[in-house]
Design a binder for these strands. Sequence first.
RNA 1: GCCGAUGUAGCUCAAUGGUAGAGCAAUUGAUUUGUAAUCAAUAGGUUGGGGGUUCAAUUCCCUUCAUCGGCUCCA
Length: 634
Amino acid sequence: MSINISLPDGSIKTYAKAVTALEVATEISPRLADAAICAEVNGKLVDLDHLIEADSKLVLHTFKTEPGQEVYWHSTAHLMAQAVKQLYPEVKVTIGPAIEFGFYYDFDRDTPFTDDELIKIEDRMKELIKANHSYSRRELSKAEAMDIFAKMNESYKLEILAEIPDTDVISTYTQGDFIDLCRGPHISSTGKIKAVKLLKTSGAYWRGDEKNKMLHRIYGISFPSNKELTEYLAFLEEAKNRDHRKLARDLDLFSINDEVGPGLVLWHPNGAMIRHLIEAYWKEEHLRKGYKLVYTPHVGRSKLWETSGHLGFYKENMYAPMEIEEQDYYIKPMNCPFHIAIYKANHHSYRELPIRLAELGTVYRYERSGVLHGLMRVRGFTQDDAHIICTPEQMDTEVDKLITFSLDMLKHFGFKEFMIYLSTRPEGSVGEAEDWDAATESLRRSLEKQGLDYKVDEGGGAFYGPKIDIKIKDALGRAWQCTTIQFDFNLPARFNMEYIGADNTPHRPYMIHRAVLGSVERFFATLLEYHSGNLPLWLCPTQVMVIPITDNQLEYANKLVEKLQLLGLRTEIDTRGEKIGYKIRDAELKKIPFMCVVGKNEEANNFVTLRQHTIGDLGSMDFDDAVKTIRSHQ
RNA sequence: GCCGAUGUAGCUCAAUGGUAGAGCAAUUGAUUUGUAAUCAAUAGGUUGGGGGUUCAAUUCCCUUCAUCGGCUCCA
């Protein structure tokens, strides 16, 4: 009897008896065997020393694949736990998974880990790497496992074990003197970890629930080479420079003032100009796509929020009411009830639908103090909100249009990569099953029809309807949610929304709640970080800086400014008595896309010398060519 | 909210119990400059707020506010 092992390239290797994944790898190439982290046999991740006893499909994972990275980091987490247990035996271990970048491990101990302790732990890890302990898997019964961890007094492991069905195979992994309950797989030995760095500590609740005990978490990362670690640390440094909060200070875009209040944004002239340009474009596009713009108040009577249900399910995010003439008014956390009120101000025939109401609606939500973050998470923000009210027959077309519209708009701002999620019905939802199904299928159909890659988040929808979320990936690989397209089966019923059908009887319309940018604040922050502050020309508050070399060119320079401004180019002039290098440096640091340098030569020939941000001197040319060059970047 | 760190001039940062400093920015003056920083002078502070210990607090303690990093990712 022979065993056939098929590899991803289509080739098949035949063996007379059972072989390990590592043996197969070694046969292919010693380098692969060295780089291999784990194996995938018939879709199941296993250790490299896993014995293959029947015909199988085999994939070998290195650090270059996602499963490979995950296993590598997970094994490093075990290594860290080993180091911690050696240094601080009284600490109890809990869990330590791999995450998107690196890993963490949560420990139960009275005091947090200090920076000095982190260094000690890292040093111990390096010693353990040198010792090159192998990770060995052992399968055992639940009772045996309970016995082992009870003796070690590892109560969290016992808690985890207690939840595993008795019939499941339990496995432990041991390296050196450290044993951990773990499904695996793992790398073959600690020596495979070449570069490791512990990054930060933090508090984290046991199982993420704030009712549970707070544990102490250590985050870290590891790589198969020092070079990769150095590159990763440089990448973190780069991320810091791109942080929208830093860019906002450098470019004077916005600030958040202690006296005004946390999470409340002050838009400075430069930031406000960019915002204005975003909003103007947004409005124009919406009008072009058949939306009607509306404006609604910032507060509404408690009755409205009772009807909408927000006082029931959203109260903890709402601010305390203010009393006006013995009536409670709430500042709005959402725009929907107002848009519905506009819809309901008139009777509607099916002939009028779809109705698309759009508003840049500013809302206020209570966010817990610990979660505020620059413009990404604030307490007062403006949603680019719209509500589409349509008949069931129109639903498909509307969803289809929405997805196209959203992606087109995001692309216009320079974004290229998107992550799309379809979230389906959660438990405890409201609305009819057939409505949910119809809406979910409509969303799915549109995604399929447009050939878009998407992930399904089963049960991840809002309680009132299924949704599509589009997240933007920035240059550093971080994802930010922008677009959300959500069906709502709650509010139309609560507000008793209707239209008169062709049959002359009232019908309940479908309502789609959507935001393309998400919120202007978050979108602005994402945009800044994505472009590293080098915004597309059409969004720059100052597009051209005119730089006269000496005061003798002031008149010529001022005329130039006037001409550029007349053409609609946002132009400033730097008349300070500084040297040209100084003024250029200043304009470069402010990330102004174009500089017009004018001296006596330019004046004599009626020329300008153009310089482009980050590119440099573009040479002398006449005015029209300069404008043409600038506009070519529009 | 919880855990930890931080809070000194507009910005970036010094000063470990004994009169709070620097660079950049700002203001003034000189310089009129050719592609990423000209020189000099001046001004700028209740060291986040409040309380305490001390002869003396930016420094030690308490409290409060804010900022930063975390708090879903199943052994």
